Amino acid sequence: MIIQLRFSNFYSFAEGTELSFELGKKPTPSAYDIEIGGTRRLNKALAVIGANGSGKTQFIKPLAFLSWFISSSFLGSKPEDPVPFHPHTFKREEDSLFEITFLLDNEEYRYKLIANRKHVVHEALYKKTSHLFSYVFVREKTESGYDYKQQGFGFPSSQARNIRSNASLLSAAHNYDVPMASTFVEYFNKYSFNLNVSGRQHFHGGNVLESAEYFFKHAHFLSDMERMMCDFDLGICSVKIHEAEGKDDQGRSTKVFVPVAVHECENMSFELPFFEESSGTQSAFVLLRRILPVLENGGVAIIDEIDNDLHPHMLPHILELFKFEHTNPRQAQIIFTCHTPEVLNLLKKHQAYLVEKIDQQSEAWRLDEVTGLRADDNLYAKYMAGALSAVPNL
């Protein structure tokens, strides 16, 4: 579970920015709370709202970047590749900072990365011991290469110092079969997102086929997906996935998995391929492929523009999946951006971030940071009236 993310000099965010799932002692308990040891609470759900171009996507993108960098950068990039992010235009020559604090197996850890497009400057993992954090490993760039120290991490210095400069040491250690590294890679692999380090993965037909293949190969999710698609009142009574022969980009034969919706009316039925269904139906299908594994296995769903092509009435049903133990037994979390201000009627002020861009620099704040904003205030009405800012300047 994520506790907090801090970052700076990342895309439109030039200054230090904080994204926190942690609650103080004052907020009234809600169904979106995670109780930690009886003394702390974390949010299960966070919404990010703001005008077009304000930086909403950039605000959640560090989570996708860190998930990829920690788990896949060693094998997923070439030695000559740049580290795949961009600093703020005004600070393109400066390093960027990322620091994420999270819970894993009831232990609190902090991962810190300082990097630029050319190389990692500093990478470290810390574990909380009593009220302080002690290092598990620290990797520091020097003029001659990298310094490295570790405490019980299990990755030999001779190998660690030679890891290439555009890859994570955690990712490399995992591929060298270091058990502790694999534990953290497995954790970050549970982050599910519809955006990559370059931005949102815009919807296309391939998403539908990939989702269909996933459900076909993970049949235990199939019935949940089918039930929810029917519950969304899309006129669908069941979903089938047909296996067919197709061609890949090189013209070679390959398996293709085609989802089909079954519709019934007055004792008659017909099948309609998902590609002939509405964009909203297809989007709901793809969204469930992202969310259902997180709900079952634990982790974090990071969804950009969750309301894209979806009717606003579907959003409460998606969020409710994270509320209850029977649908969210492992306390999964979700953070999402949207353009639907009605979401403020579903969440409390400590569960909503607003994002605004001023002088080409994005800023973000959680609504419980706004002075004078009461817990029983109508957040939607205040936002629509412009009292909370982060609205289009038309």
Rank of each mutant, 00 (worst) to 15 (best):
Met1Lys: 10
Leu5Glu: 01
Arg6His: 11
Phe7His: 02
Tyr11Phe: 15
Gly16Phe: 06
Thr17Cys: 08
Lys25Glu: 15
Pro27Trp: 06
Gly37Asp: 13
Gly37Thr: 07
Ala45His: 00
Val48Ala: 05
Ile49Pro: 00
Asn52Ile: 00
Asn52Cys: 02
Thr57Phe: 02
Lys61Tyr: 00
Leu66Gln: 02
Ser67Asp: 06
Ser67Thr: 05
Trp68Gly: 10
Ser72Phe: 11
His86Trp: 10
Pro87Thr: 05
Pro87Met: 01
Glu93Met: 13
Glu93Lys: 14
Asn106Cys: 10
Glu107Leu: 12
Glu108Asp: 03
Glu108Arg: 15
Glu108Ile: 15
Leu113Gly: 10
Ile114Asp: 01
Ile114His: 04
Asn116Pro: 02
His119Cys: 05
His131Ala: 14
Leu132Trp: 07
Ser134Tyr: 05
Phe137Pro: 01
Val138Asp: 06
Thr142Lys: 11
Thr142Leu: 03
Glu143Met: 01
Asp147Lys: 10
Gln150Val: 04
Gly152Gln: 06
Gln159Glu: 12
Ala160Ile: 04
Arg161Met: 10
Ile163Ala: 03
Ile163Pro: 00
Arg164Asn: 06
Ser165Cys: 13
Ala172Leu: 04
Asp177Gly: 05
Ser182Val: 05
Tyr187Arg: 10
Val197Phe: 15
Gln201Glu: 14
Glu210His: 02
Phe215His: 00
His218Val: 03
Ala219Tyr: 11
Phe221Glu: 10
Phe221Trp: 08
Met228Phe: 13
Met229Ala: 03
Leu234Phe: 14
Ile236Leu: 11
Val239Leu: 13
Val239Gly: 06
Asp249Met: 11
Lys255Glu: 13
Lys255Trp: 07
Pro259Trp: 00
Pro273Met: 09
Glu277Cys: 12
Ser279Ile: 10
Gly280Ala: 02
Ile291Tyr: 01
Glu296Thr: 09
Ile302Glu: 12
Ile306Cys: 07
Ile306Met: 15
Pro316Phe: 07
Lys323Tyr: 09
Pro329Phe: 04
Ile334Pro: 06
Ile335Cys: 11
Thr340Trp: 06
Leu344Tyr: 04
Asn345Pro: 02
Lys348Ala: 04
His350Phe: 10
Leu354Cys: 08
Gln360Leu: 14
Gln361His: 12
Glu363Met: 15
Leu367Ala: 11
Arg374Val: 00
Asn378Trp: 03
